[in-house]
Design a binder for these strands. Structure first.
Lengths: 125, 125
DNA sequence: TCAAATCTACGATGATTATCGTAATTGACA
DNA sequence: TGTCAATTACGATAATCATCGTAGATTTGA
């Protein structure tokens, strides 16, 4: 049985950065975070230290700093979050959420085509 | 400019019940909630009172009880929640989330077909 | 009518989150 | 080597959330 990954919104933002850009220092993460929101450096630091305790992150020392890595699988973590949302907000209907997402979002034709291809593959299987 | 609707997980469950079944008393909501989770009656009551203050709900008196109604639009609230998740967890890519949702979910062929039809309509427009 | 059942109001509490200030540590380099 | 800048460690705090107990009000029906 896979463990349940429970991350807050703020933690997800950090995980997201690490998933996207790979291992990074607190400084790196903080700078990227600062582009979107503003919080103090120590806030980010503390956040990441807590995530280390929760084992959402791992780290290795490098000189005087630490390099952090996401310790949870991206697919799995994202999947669980989406599932929780589907359950609590969409009565368990993934489809309902997909339609909502597609409806609100201005997806390009190319994107829509990708989804279509994906659907086909899924249907055939 | 539309206001930002911010509801917690527990609040969403309540909203969801009201959206699905229409106006209801605390008792009604609580009984439905009790099917899934267990919490005391006063917990649900308090929750709904707070939601009233936040103007997520409205209510009218009916005898000694109050009948509550969701005061926020379902489409709009769901849309904002999904959008927030897309932003924080999927780097702003709705598609990425859709694929995640479809991947995790065992959708029936009929469901997939519905999505396909929806996509076509969206593409043509 | 009045007692029991039901409901609301309200405050308190513990847990979790998010935030940040300060102090201690470390490494770089003048 | 000694100082300065950057980093980590740690603790504190305020805000938010979820939960529930108790008291008071109201309705119902025996």
């Amino acid at each position: 049985m896979q463990q349940t990954i429970k991350a807050t919104e703020a933690e997800l933002e950090i995980l997201n950065i690490l998933w996207t850009h790979g291992p990074a220092t607190v400084r790196d993460v903080h700078d990227r975070l600062a582009l979107k929101k503003d919080a103090g450096y120590t806030t980010t630091l503390k956040q990441m230290q807590i995530m280390l305790e929760k084992e959402l992150l791992s780290r290795v020392a490098s000189g005087k700093t630490h390099v952090y890595t996401a310790a949870v699988d991206q697919q799995q973590a994202q999947g669980q979050i989406v599932q929780r949302m589907i359950d609590s907000v969409f009565n368990g209907s993934a489809m309902q959420m997909v339609m909502q997402a597609l409806g609100n979002h201005k997806a390009s034709d190319a994107e829509l085509e990708m989804i279509r291809v994906y659907l086909d593959k899924k249907t055939k299987k």
